[in-house]
């Protein structure tokens, strides 16, 4: 509840996310080389590009895992570059990881519940009994259903199958009802069927929220996204609607052809 109060007048902010001339270097090596991008509230935005283009690094900058070398990031109109991840999460941004990043010895349910506590305002409380928190437990159960993991509720997350861990990864990200969601290759490693379920889930939960998704499956990308950005070697070479991206010569040359070859 408290976190909500901090979000500066969302209605007034036209863009959920605004990146301005963002740069990131690791040592002398530039990885992100001047990215500027505005993503509207409620937009589903896909980020594509060849391996090593810097997609995950861009997510790491937006979510506060790394501080940018130069440039600025605005979240719902607020200047947030250099903020630690928890500050960004409290302002309504959540992300998933390409390499599964869960709480291995907590049960599936605890994994999800830990992800809703702050957003419901429980903060560092040592005066609430966590099992008596109706709202937190209900929200965690609801998320479990959404990711179809109710049957695995009490299993330690570390012993789940890979695909189940990927589903849990998404669950942790969406559980807290963030209004900006970043998903980094959410369906990688899933079977066709599981991936289809995941895409339906992503479509459903991103309703009315802002979604940025990195995805290699072009079927999913063109189906899901309102707009697509193509990142190549640390630069966005095109941002447009799916149809226009498909027809874009530079994109075909740089990415789509090689990806289909």
């Amino acid at each position: 509840m408290n976190a909500m109060a901090k979000i500066p007048d969302i209605e007034a902010a036209p863009t959920a996310l605004e990146l301005c001339d963002l740069h990131k270097s690791f040592g002398p090596t530039p990885i992100i080389r001047g990215v500027s991008l505005g993503i509207a509230r409620g937009e589903r935005h896909a980020m594509i590009g060849p391996n090593g283009a810097g997609k995950s690094t861009l997510f790491n900058l937006i979510s506060g895992r790394f501080a940018p070398t130069a440039g600025s990031i605005r979240l719902n109109g607020e200047q947030v570059s250099g903020f630690p991840p928890y500050q960004l999460n409290r302002r309504g941004l959540a992300r998933s990881f390409q390499v599964t990043n869960i709480f291995p010895r907590l049960s599936v349910f605890e994994n999800i519940r830990c992800s809703v506590l702050w957003s419901l305002g429980y903060r560092y409380s040592f005066w609430h009994r966590v099992d008596s928190l109706r709202d937190a437990n209900a929200q965690a159960e609801r998320t479990l259903e959404q990711i179809r993991m109710t049957a695995r509720r009490d299993v330690p997350a570390g012993v789940l199958t890979y695909a189940e861990q990927r589903a849990l990864e998404i669950g942790i990200t969406i559980a807290g009802n963030a209004n900006v969601i970043l998903l980094d290759e959410p369906t990688a490693g899933m079977s066709r069927r599981e991936a289809a379920n995941a895409v339906e889930l992503i479509r459903a939960v991103s309703q009315g929220r802002t979604l940025v998704i990195v995805e290699h499956d072009m079927g999913v990308v063109f189906d899901l996204a309102d707009r697509i950005s193509v990142l190549v070697y640390g630069e966005i070479i095109a941002t447009d609607t799916p149809e226009k991206i498909r027809g874009n010569k530079a994109v075909q040359a740089a990415y789509l052809d090689s990806a289909h070859a």
């Binding site: 999460n89 990043n101 709480f103 605890e110 702050w118 560092y124 040592f126 009994r129």
Partner: peptide
């Protein structure tokens, strides 16, 4: 204490401190 919100987050920090920061906790 282990059954309070902060007690559960202690377990989460033990398991994976990095991810804890991405669900709102310092």
């Amino acid at each position: 204490f282990t059954r309070t919100p902060v007690g559960r987050m202690c377990n989460a920090v033990r398991d994976n401190p990095e991810r804890v920061e991405f669900v709102g906790y310092n």
